[in-house]
């Protein structure tokens, strides 16, 4: 891959206690399916995708996705969490080569 995958998240910084907050995430990644052939050599292009996305809040599991090649390039995920305390989100993306990319975001609950 030419560029290093860049993770992006859109998550509120504050929330009222008991609110369900909406979280949007995106990471730039080609998501090579392994089914495509190189047009010049005719050889199959090896699979290279983000295969796991994990979201934790203060170390506790919130949401995760097991990803297969049918997910589009630059995988986008939207999901929710019930805000009942202040803490920190941790978003982790793991690819086929074992590389991981992460991002953190704080949430204050009033």
């Amino acid at each position: 891959m030419a560029k290093k995958p860049k993770p992006r998240v859109k998550v509120p910084k504050t929330a009222a206690k008991g609110d369900v907050v909406n979280i949007k995430t995106l990471i730039s990644h080609k998501m090579e399916t392994g089914l495509r052939k190189d047009k010049k050599t005719g050889k199959p292009v090896p699979r290279h995708i983000i295969n796991k996305f994990i979201v934790k809040f203060d170390g506790e599991d919130v949401f995760s996705v097991d990803i297969d090649p049918a997910i589009s390039a630059n995988p986008y995920f939207q999901f929710s969490m019930k805000a009942d305390k202040s803490g920190e989100f941790e978003f982790v993306w793991i690819d086929d080569k074992g590389e991981s990319f992460s991002k953190k975001s704080k949430l204050t609950v009033n």
């Binding site: 506790e60 919130v62 949401f63 996705v65 097991d66 297969d68 997910i71 589009s72 995920f77 999901f79």
Partner: peptide
């Protein structure tokens, strides 16, 4: 395609992708 893993912390069982 994908498997979404939810927890009681999720609040609502909703997810979107492409």
């Amino acid at each position: 395609v994908a498997t979404f893993n939810f927890t009681p912390r999720s609040g609502v069982a909703e997810a979107s992708t492409r």
